[in-house]
Structures are given as structure tokens and as C-alpha cells.
Design a protein around this nucleic acid. Structure first.
Lengths: 160, 160
DNA sequence: AAAATATGTCAACAAAGCTGACATATATGG
DNA sequence: CCATATATGTCAGCTTTGTTGACATATTTT
């Protein structure tokens, strides 16, 4: 008799044993990623909760700060959201003076996005606690281990 | 004259240089975490898009499968969401026969949650592509590097 | 000149979070 | 035993951030 069947006999429909890692699945890293990301975004979220902006604004101001001059299309590709979804938050950031847009030099249909000084400061303020968390997590990990971490994270990303 | 001021002279309000890592911030790992997580959740999302469930259901069925018998309070603490938010998705999972609840043995106010066979199968189906992605990212990383990755992810999580 | 492209915008909707208020069952402490 | 605390459920309404579909405008490409 398979173990689950015996289990079900005493408690119909309810599997009572924990589900451990097995050949197919790597539950522990799945969970570590969930917990790490959950707390990683809690830092900027706490700061943003006192402002009129949210997570979506954070992402936009982050990437505009990191890659000044990117186009709207670049940003959509990076964030993997629709232009209507981006439009809402981008408009608020532009209207509030955090981001500045300029028609493209070669292709004047493009809107190239740049942070203002205020935008750069916001991006930095939000990045700081996240960086502190990362620094703490990397402390006591040797250079080889740190390289492995970067390689792993890169390997998790879809090609392109 | 500070460099940003000179920059602003020719292009008012727009900082045009990329923002590199510096002492305060570790932008590259911040971004790697964003991209890794973005694609990590895209696998189960694609499967769920053909069902009546979403990400929130995934999280619930995952943790119930991993820790059968956890209480509603445990789950709230793990997910860090409100009970009203959990109630919506949990009810749907119970009504559809993915999760089963039982009054606590000692404390009968508690509702202990268990996966049904169907629930366990869903959790596994959603975990499988994520595990494949993880396995691929870990391939070519030696045991020491893999230990560093686990240590890093654990270090990113808030204590408790 | 026609077609394609980059962007913006309107409207409606869905998922998943939130707050506040209140109900019920059960446990616990005096 | 009663009063209070706790675990859970539920109603109502709101917010943020995602989605589709349709259509407008400016500019580039063919």
C-alpha cells in the first residue's frame, strides 16, 4: 500500500507529512528566494508608504536612474509590463519632477528618460537600505562565494 | 563647480550619466535580484494563467503543502499579508478541494491546513519549472558556491 | 504617398493588497 | 463561573498595479 493511501485512511483527504525536497523539486531554494525577496522589498516599501508613490514608481525611477536616456520601449522591455500600466506611474513621476523626458536625437518619436536631481536622490534613498541588507548578507562570504551568487542570479534570468 | 551642475547646464534637469555602484549602494545585485525574481515567478504565472488561480493561490498552496497542519496565523505570518487578503484565496482553494482544514487537536479555535492530493499535485506542478530554472542556474557552481548562495539568501531574510 | 513604428490616452476590468468593523467559538485567568 | 483574550471568519469599501482593446498623433521607413 502506498504511504499516502495509509495516511488518507486515518485523515481523509488531508496529507499530513511535510513535503521534502526530492529529485524534481528544490523547495528550499524556492522558499529562500521567496523570503529573501519578500524582505528585500519591504525596506523601500516602508519608505514609500509615507509618500504618494509605490513599488511601481520605485522600479521606474530605479531604472531611469541607472540607465539615463533609455526609451519608453526599453523600460517596458525591462519591467515586462504594458505601456498603459507604465504610463500611469511614469506620468506621475514626470509631473512631480522626478523624471524628465527628451525627444530622441536620431529618432524624434522616442522619448528618452532622464532622472532629475530629485529623481536621483529618491532612487538612492530607496536603494540604500536594500544595499545595507545585501552587504550584511554578503558579509562573511568570500570572493569566490560572492562570484557564485552573482553567477546564480544571472543564471536565473531568461536569456536576452 | 560640482560635475552634476555642469551637466545640468547643457541639459537642464536631466542627469545623463549612468549611476554606477558606489560605497553606499550595490545596484548590480539589486537589479540581479529583480530580474531573477521577475523570471522566477513567470514560470508558475504562465501555468496559472490557464486556471482560475493566481500568484496568491500559488503561495498558499505551496506553504500548506510544505508545512501540512500549519494554522491560519502561521500562514499570515509567513506571507506577511492580512487575514482578509488571505481569506479570499484560501476560501477558493478550500472550496475547490485543494486544501482541507481541520480544527486543532489541542486548541479547537485553530484551523489547521492540509493539502489534498489534488493540492499537493498543484504545488508540485508549479514548483517543477521553478526547480528546473534553479537547477540550471546552479549547474557549474561547486558545492562551496552553492553553500554561499544559501547563506546569502538566508542572510537577506529578516531575523525571526 | 502608404505603411510601419514609438508613444500617448481613454475606458473598463481583474488581482491582490489594505483598513475598519463586527461576529463566533474557544481558551484562559481571576 | 464569568470576564477577557485569542483564533478565525466575514462584510464593505478602497488602493495599487497589472491587464485588454481601441484609437490618436507624430515621425520614420519603404
Amino acid at each position: 500500500m502506498p504511504p499516502d493511501e495509509a495516511e488518507n485512511r486515518s485523515d481523509p483527504g488531508a496529507l499530513t507529512r511535510p513535503q521534502p525536497d526530492n529529485d524534481d523539486v528544490n523547495f528550499d531554494i524556492i522558499e529562500l528566494l521567496f523570503f529573501a525577496y519578500r524582505d528585500f522589498i519591504s525596506d523601500p516599501d516602508a519608505i514609500l508608504s509615507k509618500s504618494k508613490f509605490g513599488r511601481a514608481h520605485h522600479r521606474v525611477v530605479h531604472f531611469v536612474n541607472r540607465r539615463p536616456g533609455l526609451t519608453v520601449a526599453d523600460l517596458l522591455e525591462t519591467l515586462k509590463i504594458t505601456k498603459q500600466s507604465l504610463a500611469r506611474v511614469l506620468k506621475q513621476l514626470i509631473d512631480s519632477g522626478y523624471i524628465h523626458q527628451v525627444a530622441g536625437h536620431d529618432d524624434r518619436r522616442q522619448r528618452r528618460l532622464y532622472p532629475t536631481q530629485k529623481g536621483r536622490e529618491l532612487a538612492m534613498e530607496l536603494a540604500r537600505p536594500q544595499s545595507r541588507r545585501i552587504a550584511k548578507a554578503l558579509r562573511d562570504i568570500d570572493p569566490g562565494g560572492q562570484a557564485a551568487i552573482r553567477q546564480f542570479l544571472k543564471g536565473m534570468v531568461d536569456p536576452q
